[in-house]
């Protein structure tokens, strides 16, 4: 058995205290509300249900599918949890999963856990549930299609958020981290979308009582639709803009006084990198991004190879 490297679990030390604190604050607000809401709906029943659903997400993340060259993709689950359990329960379940991954397996840090929960549990619930809720009255095809898109987009939004957090923390240069993160997660998101759709349609076919539209509609109303659509539009518009024109985003952030608050040390890994024949056009940024993706893949590949060798328990799977 082996755990695939999860690029989205930010470890301690990679985000500044400022960024960590802001995302802890946001996360605490959401999780607090989630506890209240599920408590109201489920009472003491919430504990076993949420606990086992969290264990389900954890276990489902082990269902892997071979991709290529010894790497394998796996499932993140945030969107599916929010769709079938409702957004508040989904947030609670993902919080528990991320908490145990950080506490027990050191997969993701503690000080940065607020950011990790926000990226992988809250934004995924908002986009996943919000978009799905908006097409709840449509036929199955539309609903499943939107569920897939929502799962893909929620993965992209997680990657986008993580990249932005790393950048504001001064851990990485936006021109590199953003295209690399998004590039990798375009593919991971496709896996997420297919798995979410297949899982959802299987649940609908075998246990229609669990995923009835009326039941899902009870879990959250128009607020979620608005939130989901807003965040989706934001993610869809920001990603290409930011990947192609990171300087634009940087100047916006500077005008807002955002960067000076976050970046504690002057960092400049590369004074400037450029492709001489392309100059500083968006093309050269994209090219650099692609190279970043290739390097990332190579690294992840090498790491998973080396882990396979050193981990004797990996033989049986």
């Amino acid at each position: 058995m082996r755990f695939s490297p999860a690029q989205l679990h930010i470890p301690d030390g990679f985000l500044t205290l400022f960024v960590s604190a802001i995302f802890w604050l946001l996360t605490v607000l959401f999780v607090n509300q989630a506890i209240r809401q599920t408590n109201k709906k489920l009472g003491e029943k919430q504990v076993p249900l949420m606990g086992i659903m969290a264990a389900f997400i954890f276990a489902a993340q082990m269902i892997n599918f071979p991709v290529a060259g010894g790497t394998s993709g796996h499932f993140l689950g945030g969107a599916l949890a929010a769709i079938v359990l409702g957004p508040w329960a989904g947030i609670l379940v993902m919080t528990a999963v991320i908490a145990i991954q950080g506490l027990l397996f050191q997969d993701g840090g503690l000080l940065v856990m607020g950011a990790n929960i926000f990226n992988m549990g809250i934004i995924t619930a908002i986009i996943g549930f919000g978009l799905y809720r908006s097409v709840l009255n449509q036929n199955t095809k539309v609903r499943l299609g939107v569920a897939g898109f929502a799962a893909w987009l929620s993965t992209m939004a997680s990657a986008l958020l993580a990249a932005l957090q790393l950048w504001i923390s001064g851990t990485s240069q936006l021109q590199i981290v953003l295209p690399a993160m998004l590039g990798v997660h375009v593919l991971i998101g496709i896996g997420e979308a297919v798995i979410t759709v297949a899982a959802l349609s299987l649940i609908e076919r075998t246990r229609p009582d669990l995923a009835k539209p009326e039941k899902i509609a009870e879990q959250g109303g128009y607020g979620w639709i608005i939130g989901g659509v807003l965040f989706s539009v934001f993610a869809v518009l920001l990603s290409p803009f930011a990947s192609q024109n990171p300087d634009g985003l940087e100047s916006v952030a500077e005008n807002l006084g955002f960067l000076s608050a976050g970046v504690s040390a002057p960092y400049q890994l590369l004074s400037d990198y450029s492709l001489p024949f392309l100059g500083s056009t968006p093309l050269s940024t994209i090219a650099a991004g692609i190279i970043g993706v290739v390097v990332t893949f190579a690294l992840v590949f090498l790491i998973s190879r080396s882990l396979k060798k050193t981990d004797p328990t990996s033989k049986d799977h």
Binding site: F56, I63, P66, V194, T196, A198, I203, R207
Partner: peptide, 26 residues
């Protein structure tokens, strides 16, 4: 690859149904 992903998804759905029933029992 697409087929493999779908199988993984069906398995996740199956696992969900089993877990849900188990939580009721528990």
């Amino acid at each position: 690859l697409f087929w493999r992903m779908r199988v993984a998804g069906n398995m996740a759905g199956q696992l969900f149904v089993r877990s849900y029933d188990r939580s009721d029992r528990i």
